[in-house]
Design a protein around this nucleic acid. Structure first.
Lengths: 135, 135
DNA sequence: TTCTCTGCAAATGCTTTGCAGAGGC
DNA sequence: GCCTCTGCAAAGCATTTGCAGAGAA
């Protein structure tokens, strides 16, 4: 079982369950979805624990918190540089693995020290696009 | 005074005040900041009206709703293609006007029909970077 | 005159917090 | 055994909504 050394915080069954669910997950779940999923295997978990764990994971660089969705945060266990494509209808998010050239002229930074970047694409997923067409 | 033809919705003094404040504004204000600013000139405006107007403007393509900030939406009256740079400390947002090459291989889209894109940069603004250094 | 918009206040929904007890290290 | 983590419940905020009256077109 992974110990404190691997994650920088105390390991508990609840946190193990959350990590298990997130491991390799590419669905970009919300806190609610994570809570519901963990509830299946671990009926005694609370929302506070989910948020607490996600915050701990975020601080330790184990998950990304995505603001791409209008009304809830989404979480991504893949913290290797990648980008996202959001369906504006069903809110599905998929990964874009491509190394864009995001350099731009220094005079635009207004003195900022840039530390990271992220590209968001918007569109309609196949299912939603087909539904639009058949209207 | 601008009429319904220009905006696609009924013009009222409250809406004029909001439009006046947003006109040319590059501070990417939140709803709260817009409310506070309009309150100065127009003491009888309510929050509901601010949100209602912003939603009407958004639907008519007159403002962008930015999700770049963690815990509140930010509004941008500049709807010409551009990107943003956020200070992760003071949450200041500045515009990046640069035409990035955001093409990527079709096989990554998973059938999505892409309709838009936006690049977010993160970093520290000059003031915050200097504060960090002098610690 | 018509019908959308307004202000108010309450509701909603996501996220955070206080606290006392549990349990990982 | 110490101290962080947990569950619960309540609080905190941003945003939305219901409604009756006001006022723009």
């Amino acid at each position: 079982m992974a110990g404190i050394k691997d994650y920088g915080f105390r390991m508990t069954p609840q946190r193990m369950a959350i990590l298990d669910f997130l491991e390799g997950n590419t669905s970009h779940p919300s806190a609610e979805e994570i809570y519901q999923a963990v509830l299946q295997k671990y009926p005694m978990i609370s929302f506070a624990t989910v948020y607490n764990t996600l915050e701990a994971l975020r601080k330790n660089g184990k998950v990304w918190e995505l603001n791409i969705d209008d009304d809830r945060k989404r979480y991504d266990p893949n913290t290797h540089s990648h980008h996202h494509l959001l369906c504006t209808k069903c809110r599905k998010i998929v990964d874009i693995h491509y190394d864009f050239d995001l350099r731009f002229p220094d005079e635009q930074t207004q003195g900022f020290k840039v530390t990271g970047s992220h590209v968001e694409f918007y569109g309609l997923c196949q299912d939603c696009a087909e539904m639009e067409e058949s209207k």
